[in-house]
Nucleic acid binder design. Structure first.
Length: 555
RNA sequence: GUCUCAGUAGCUCAGCUGGAUAGAGCAACAGCCUUCUAAGCUGUGGGUCGGGGGUUCGAAUCCCUCCUGGGACGCCA
């Protein structure tokens, strides 16, 4: 428990005791006491609405209840400086500031670990994200999914969950067939022959590159090979190439995975059949029109779903059901899937499958990474995987810069559509929010470099000197960080970290302009402030790391 | 048509388990560099929280309904 949590606990206990002392109600009737930070600083450090909540139980008007609580509260045990009543019955509490000064020491002690908590109690969570088909480049939507998924995983880990990151490779099914045929067509084209790309084939530059490599390496060796052999070779070669490219691109995007799970390994392992058998035993399978169906409507889906097509092959969902069962059997408490907007309608049937297999529906949580619209020169840029004119992740990073891309994608809640303004992201100006936080970090780094020349060193010993308004604001903001991370994890909302970073940077910049840190005439205050800005820098760096953005020493 | 997500300042968006006068950035306007990085700070203006009902001491937040927009509705993946 950190300094802030401790003080909140103290305050809550003091209020709790006061309620009992004032004989407002019995122990078991006291609701959970909520402390909130008032918008307006003049309303104290914390406020509680407990008096309003007690009106029905105590059968008294809220202000009378508030007065009774205030009268009976033990200020000493709650570290309370002052307490008063406002509005309809809010109790506003101003605290003694010594606990805040402790924050500096905590941060300096914990360093890169500051902000980590055990809020998640080691709950085992698997996050599956990106999972783009290995048939082309990652585009804008995948970039968003990758940013959100990686940041969420980092946040969960920091908040004390046991996180496992996984990429599901769709390396079986008809899209792989199309990949093989597309490579084949490009291969023949590279040899100067006229061969059309299949209707559902892939037109991206990457396929042309693969064909080029094949010709370079093997010449026309595969031109006259038996069709089946050639097909398999092109399929495997294409897959390997695409997969390597995905891995490299994601690595460069600072998105690591613990596991790359191959769909094709489900075939032949019996897992698909096992899952199907289980559904059948539970009575959720039927045959109709020569196909095998899953009666998903039993669990609230719109329609029943085909599992085995008339031609004997599986639909997309069949191995996916087996995959999800496999994940559950690997012992995860929770599965979080991050899916693209186009898979939105897929959620009810997957949930239905989880239930039909006999698991709790809420084992699975799906986060939809909504559509991204790219704007340049004020105009919307269209994208399409099929035409090959899509804006790829790689191009985006080259144009905009890694930090800006990561930051832009995670600063908005992932489940709402967003506009990505390329001009804004590229601009190295004050219009660009990504530099704001990095600039704060660089500014602090600069001061710390200069402090050494003056032989001044950060010291939390004199933290009690940090009493100026901007210093208190900064201390409070730094103290909030562990709770911000825990909330972001609980709500699966990594964008909260980005919002926090902006607030923290703003609080620092404001402090910077109001107070001078380095003053050789006042070494004690200087060293206390150096400790304060060191703690600030650590907090900014830790927060930026969670969202995959670098923290530069100089800008 | 059904399902689903959204609608908050000129623009892009925050807003927790319902709380006090609804916030931030950008844009606009007015100031601040002989002082640790002006990619910064300070201040001003800007709102029927899509409309209408309801729940309650209290609603941007919860419920109903309507309007508008996106997305999904395949024996594709």
């Amino acid at each position: 428990m950190n300094a802030v949590e401790q003080i909140q606990q103290k305050v809550k206990s003091a209020i709790h005791e006061a309620i009992l002392l004032a004989k407002l109600t019995e122990e078991e009737n006291i609701p959970a006491i909520m402390l909130e930070t008032p918008r307006n600083k003049e309303n104290g450090d914390y406020a509680t609405n407990i008096a309003m909540q007690l009106t029905k139980i105590a059968k008294k008007p809220p202000r009378a209840i508030a007065e009774a609580i205030v009268e009976h509260i033990d200020k000493e045990s709650g570290s309370i400086e002052s307490i008063d009543i406002a509005g309809p019955g809010f109790i506003n509490i101003t605290l003694k500031k010594d606990y805040l000064q402790e924050v500096v020491k905590t941060v300096l002690d914990q360093g890169a670990e500051y902000g980590r908590s055990n809020a998640g109690n080691g709950e085992k969570i698997q996050v599956e994200f990106v999972s783009a088909n290995p048939t082309g480049d990652l585009h804008l939507g995948h970039a968003r999914g990758a940013s959100v998924g990686d940041s969420l995983s980092n946040v969960l880990d920091f908040a004390g969950y046991d996180v496992h990151r996984e990429y599901y490779i769709n390396d079986a099914g008809s899209q792989i067939d199309n990949l093989a045929l597309s490579v084949e067509a490009r291969y023949f084209q590279a040899l100067g022959e006229n061969k059309e790309i299949p209707e559902d084939g892939y037109h991206g530059q990457d396929i042309i590159d693969i064909a080029g490599k094949l010709v370079e390496e093997f010449g026309d060796k595969y031109k006259n090979m038996p069709e089946k052999e050639r097909y398999e070779f092109f399929r495997d070669y294409g897959l390997k190439y695409e997969l390597e490219k995905l891995k490299t691109d994601l690595e460069n995007f600072r998105v690591p995975f613990d596991n790359w799970f191959s769909e094709s390994t489900l075939y032949g392992s019996g897992k698909i059949e096992n899952a199907m058998n289980k559904l059948r035993e539970n009575g959720h399978i039927f045959e109709e029109d020569g196909a095998t169906w899953f009666r998903s409507t039993t669990f609230g889906d719109d329609k029943d779903r085909v599992l085995i097509k008339k031609d004997g092959s599986f639909t997309y969902i069949t191995p996916d059901i087996a995959y999800h069962e496999d994940k559950i059997q690997r012992g995860f408490d929770k599965l979080i899937n991050i899916w693209g907007a186009d898979h939105h309608g897929y959620i009810p049937r997957m949930m239905a499958a989880i239930e039909a297999l006999g698991y709790e529906k809420d084992k699975l949580e799906v986060i939809v990474a909504q559509m991204v619209h790219l704007y340049k020169d004020g105009e919307r840029m269209m994208m399409s995987k099929r035409t090959g004119k899509a804006v790829t992740l790689r191009e985006l990073v080259e144009d905009v810069g890694l930090d800006a891309v990561r930051y832009f994608f995670v600063m908005r809640s992932g489940d709402t559509q967003m506009d990505f303004d390329l001009d804004l992201a590229v601009s190295e100006s004050n219009e660009n929010p990504v530099y704001y936080a990095q600039y704060a970090h660089a500014r602090i780094s600069s001061i710390l470099r200069q402090s050494k020349e003056l032989d001044l060193h950060p010291s939390a010993e004199n933290a009690a000197l940090l009493t100026a308004e901007r210093e208190i604001d900064l201390l409070k903001k730094i103290g909030d960080f562990p709770q911000v991370v825990a909330d972001a994890a609980r709500m699966r909302a990594p964008h909260r970290v980005a919002t926090y970073i902006q607030e923290l940077a703003a609080t620092f910049h404001s402090f910077y302009n109001a107070e001078k840190v380095l003053d050789p005439e006042n070494r004690e205050l200087s060293e206390a402030r150096l400790a304060l800005i060191t703690a600030t820098r650590t907090t900014i760096a830790n927060a930026l790391k969670l969202i995959g953005v670098s923290a530069p020493e100089k800008m």
